[in-house]
């Protein structure tokens, strides 16, 4: 066990956990930020995607000890009222079915558009193909990403 001071969604937070604990579980079970989802635990599905600085990261593979003082952003910290342009595009295109994968999808999309506001379809596909949607909402995810890109 060790104490870590994390910078999550702009707030300093302390946790006392095993240094190997993945950020996924630190967020979900120690900081009660459950918007970050467990889907596979092996970096295959993207349900656990968060931002470390500006990059999208699989939090199931990120030990808490590797975070340091870097800014961590989760879906809960993306916007005050769910009105980030990407969240708005998701609602506008009524993307979700079960919804379980969508927070991870959104976090990946936000990082993509930040790095590349004019992402082409091929670039969107490449960036988003690490995120599984078992309900098969890919067509709408792509439309929403496109729409958010054009609004930025």
């Amino acid at each position: 066990m060790a104490i870590f001071t994390l910078n999550v969604n702009g707030k300093k937070q302390q946790v006392n956990v095993d240094p190997a604990t993945p950020m996924l579980w630190v967020l979900r079970e120690h900081l009660n930020l459950v918007g970050t989802k467990y889907g596979c635990g092996v970096a295959q599905c993207g349900a656990c995607t968060i931002h470390l600085g500006d990059s999208a990261i699989r939090s199931c593979q990120l030990p808490v000890s590797a975070v340091g003082d870097k800014a961590v952003t989760t879906i809960e910290g993306l916007s005050e009222n769910g009105d980030h342009p990407v969240q708005k595009a998701w609602i506008e295109h009524d993307v979700a079915q079960c919804g379980y994968c969508q927070t991870g999808q959104i976090m990946t999309a936000v990082a993509l558009l930040k790095a590349n506001p004019n992402a082409t379809d091929t670039q969107i596909e490449a960036a988003m193909s690490g995120n599984i949607c078992r309900c098969g909402t890919y067509v709408r995810i792509k439309e929403a990403v496109r729409a958010a890109a054009s609004h930025q």
Partner: peptide
């Protein structure tokens, strides 16, 4: 009509069994 759970989903609210505590 839009999904009434749309906003809760995109903001990561605790909707699922896994989220229960």
């Amino acid at each position: 009509q839009k999904n009434v759970a749309g906003k809760n989903i995109v903001t990561g609210k605790p909707l699922f069994g896994m989220d229960y505590t």
